[in-house]
């Protein structure tokens, strides 16, 4: 299976090259995707936890914000 394509645009010569990522670039790309997914999942979990806590306390998000202001 081929690696994803990367575009490289030289701003001074206007040359545009589209090529496959090399293995090092692809490994870096995959690591970044993993980290992004982990961050997104953590953010989603935090939002879920917050909503659950507000429900438990019987408060709306606006009421909680008012309480903390």
């Amino acid at each position: 299976m081929s690696n994803p394509i990367i575009r490289i645009h030289n701003s001074q010569t206007d040359e545009v090259i589209d090529r496959e990522m090399n293995d090092a670039e692809y490994a870096d790309y995959q690591a970044q995707q993993l980290m992004d997914n982990a961050k997104a999942e953590a953010a989603e979990q935090a939002a879920t936890d917050k909503a659950a806590l507000l429900a438990k306390m019987g408060l709306t998000a606006d009421e909680a914000k008012l309480l903390l202001s």
């Binding site: 994803p4 394509i5 990367i6 575009r7 490289i8 645009h9 030289n10 701003s11 001074q12 010569t13 206007d14 545009v16 589209d18 990522m21 790309y29």
Partner: peptide
């Protein structure tokens, strides 16, 4: 204006920025 680049592929790099 230094460059106008069309986004493509999984990543796009603008290089040789003066």
């Amino acid at each position: 204006l230094l460059s106008t680049t069309t986004l493509s592929g999984s990543s796009t790099a603008v290089t040789s920025i003066p």
